Amino acid sequence: MFASRVLGIIVTLMVTATALVYLAGRERRIHDNVQMDQRLELELLARDLKSQATTDPVTGLRNRAKFNKRLADEMARAERYATPFSLVLYDIDGFKTINDTQGHQVGDQLLVELSELVARKIRRTDFFARWGGDEFAIIATQSSGDRAARLAKSLVKTVSEHRFKAAPHVTCSFGVAEYSRGETAESLLSRADEALYRAKMNGRNRAERAPPRKPNGSGLVEVA
């Protein structure tokens, strides 16, 4: 009888110990799962914040900050490996009138439609960003000025022939500049912007290419 009681006590203790070990392990697993969920939430939040910092909220394209970083990278690559690249700037002809007469919602819809159209026509290796307002920038990698000019002219045709939902007829003007080794980002942007301005002055719905930069006898650089 005594032996049976002792055995019963031992069995009870073993069952209790097993249950405690199980509960402790279960609690530990729950704790680990909670920590894992929290880590995942923080990682997703960090990823989302990073995306917001580099993405235009209207079009979903890269924003100006990300563009500046990519432009610096392309310039460094061009200096190191002597690889060509060109910059294409463009904007929508008469966009202010569309905004003023049809409202900003229609204007935003047009920006989205246009961005999607152009994105389908450029290479995956090219870098496409919203520069600001209705102005956009394309870094045409591994591209001479001639190739970038052909791209810009083809986009002029593509845009003018497309029928947008937001506006019946839309055209764009483009400015192209090929990077010259030793050139600053400000100089490249200025030359592309001047070419874009010239396209506007020459009737819009067209592409203009900036003349190449040439070193003069004093070692300075001037526009040809």
Rank of each mutant, 00 (worst) to 15 (best):
Q102D: 10
T83K: 10
L114W: 05
L111E: 10
D91Y: 08
Y81D: 12
R130T: 04
G103W: 08
L110N: 09
D93H: 06
A82D: 14
G94A: 02
I92V: 15
L114E: 04
A82W: 11
R120C: 12
T97I: 15
A82N: 14
A76M: 15
F95P: 09
Y81M: 05
V112S: 06
I98T: 13
Y90A: 05
K121P: 00
F128R: 00
E116M: 13
V106L: 03
N99C: 11
A129N: 02
G94W: 00
H104E: 13
E79H: 15
G103I: 13
T125W: 08
I98S: 08
K96Y: 12
D91L: 10
T97L: 15
F95C: 12
A72T: 11
T101F: 00
G103V: 11
G103F: 10
F127A: 02
A78K: 04
N99I: 11
D108T: 05
Q109P: 02
L117I: 12
V88Y: 10
G94D: 01
L110Y: 08
F128T: 00
R123S: 05
D91P: 08
A78Q: 06
D91S: 13
L111W: 12
F85M: 04
M75N: 10
V118T: 10
R124T: 08
D93Q: 04
F128N: 00
D93T: 05
V118G: 08
D73I: 05
A72V: 08
R77K: 12
S115R: 05
Q102S: 13
F128L: 02
G107C: 06
R124Y: 06
T101E: 07
D126Y: 08
G107L: 03
R77W: 06
F95A: 10
